[in-house]
Design a protein around this nucleic acid. Structure first.
Length: 403
DNA sequence: CACTCGTGGAA
DNA sequence: TTTCCAAGAGT
């Protein structure tokens, strides 16, 4: 027996919150009924053709690797969006070793357009650790894989449940919707997740964790959606949210916040060779380590970043007003989840002393923050999506900027 | 623990 | 059109 398995003998009365936040008490009978109907439905109408599902033509190691990659891509991202990215990624990096030995730039390039780019950077780092410490084979050990960058509680559990058929319960967006509605859990967002953890554990079908985990996610993604299809649902007779006409208020919705606006100027410089100047963005903030155009913040989204200079070389700083021949060439808006970006594109010429400094630096260091790149090489650089779209418009003869 | 981090689908 | 938010994790 694996000593790390969650307890198989937990008592419902002790582990579940049987109080007034539930519309009705949870019973062992309700759980057995839920598992049986869910697995029966999954067998008949589940999504059995997802490309990361384990296949006999792959080894255990490769099947686990594919499940891992898919789980990272699927974080906060819908299945239909992920599938083409997954196929391209697997062609480029078919094994953990291939991913570990690739450059971060190549990994980010295959992530371009998918968003949340820290996933790609963490994945690359985790692949190196996996190859070093476990020969590329994801071990059946929760703590070991949980310690890898980018793998949290839900992803670790999903990998063990789907890859090793081990009884680890997940708590993702699907499970949150499904189980909050089935049990009728009415609680604010933070308290809700704390309550749902033991509930997810209790509902897990320990005879078949792999199918159960895929089943509850398929159910949440196709029927028990944000706007649920209760008219086609097979669980309305035990769904407390349905029985109390509360599927619209369960689970509790996030508090909505006003989106701040950030205004930036983007600079388009050409040199004598017809190359343009790209900025490799810092590793931490938005679009970390992606290549964009040199940027000046005109109006920040918080009080801290009200404005910034474009270059700071030695003691001299360059701001928008230093480029007196600048001409506005384009403007666009880009909506993030948490703020709105307003960008104005300017063409300008680079002062000669500044151009000399950049030429010197880039011949010495390929990882320099500012790099001259030929137009026909732009497609190979990982870019933020709005920058890729902008390049598509500026250089329509090269139509390879967006994935 | 509240905030940060992308993009596109759905209504 | 605007708004919400999806197979979350890191800080």
């Amino acid at each position: 027996m694996n000593p790390q398995l969650p307890s198989d003998t937990l008592s419902l009365d002790q582990s579940l919150p049987q109080d007034d936040t539930l519309l009705a008490p949870i019973t062992a009978q309700q759980i057995r009924y839920f598992q049986a109907r869910l697995l029966e439905w999954f067998e008949r109408e589940g999504r059995h053709d997802l490309p990361w599902k384990p296949q006999d033509c792959f080894s255990l190691k490769i099947n686990l690797y594919r499940i891992w990659i898919s789980e990272i891509m699927l974080q906060q991202t819908q299945v239909a969006t992920v599938i083409p990215y997954f196929e391209r990624f697997m062609t480029a990096f078919p094994t953990p070793e291939a991913l570990a030995t690739a450059s971060e730039e190549a990994v980010l390039h295959h992530w371009q357009g998918l968003g949340y780019y820290s996933r790609a950077r963490n994945l690359h780092q985790a692949a190196k650790m996996l190859v070093e410490q476990h020969q590329g084979l994801i071990p059946p050990d929760f703590e070991a894989i949980r310690s890898l960058k980018g793998i949290g509680d839900t992803t670790a559990s999903a990998i063990l449940a789907q890859g090793y058929n081990l009884p680890f319960a997940i708590l993702d967006g699907n499970v949150r919707r499904v189980l909050a509605r089935i049990t009728g859990l009415q609680a604010p967002r933070t308290e809700q997740d704390r309550r749902l953890k033991p509930i997810s554990d209790a509902f897990l079908c320990r005879q078949n964790p792999a199918d159960y985990t895929q089943a509850i996610m398929d159910f949440g993604a196709t029927l028990c959606k944000l706007k649920p299809a209760c008219d086609r649902c097979f669980l309305t007779d035990i769904c407390q949210a349905y029985l109390h006409n509360a599927t619209n208020t369960i689970p509790a919705k996030a508090i909505k916040k006003t989106r701040p606006v950030e205004s930036v100027a983007l600079l388009l410089f050409h040199n004598a060779k017809g190359e343009i100047l790209l900025e490799k963005r810092p590793a931490n903030g938005i679009w970390g380590n992606l290549y964009s155009l040199p940027e000046i913040i005109l109006q920040g989204r918080n009080a801290k970043s009200q404005s910034s200079a474009i270059f700071q070389l030695d003691d001299k700083t360059y701001q928008l007003t230093d480029f007196q021949d600048r001409k506005q060439a384009a403007a666009f808006q880009h909506q993030f989840t948490h703020y709105t970006l307003e960008a104005t594109l300017f063409t300008a010429t680079l002062p000669k002393e500044l151009q000399h400094r950049l030429d010197e630096a880039s011949t010495h260091n390929k990882d320099e923050r500012y790099q001259w790149v030929a137009i026909n090489q732009l497609a190979h650089k990982p870019k933020p999506q709005p920058i890729a779209i902008l390049f598509d418009q500026l250089y329509p003869e090269n139509d390879l900027f967006t994935p």
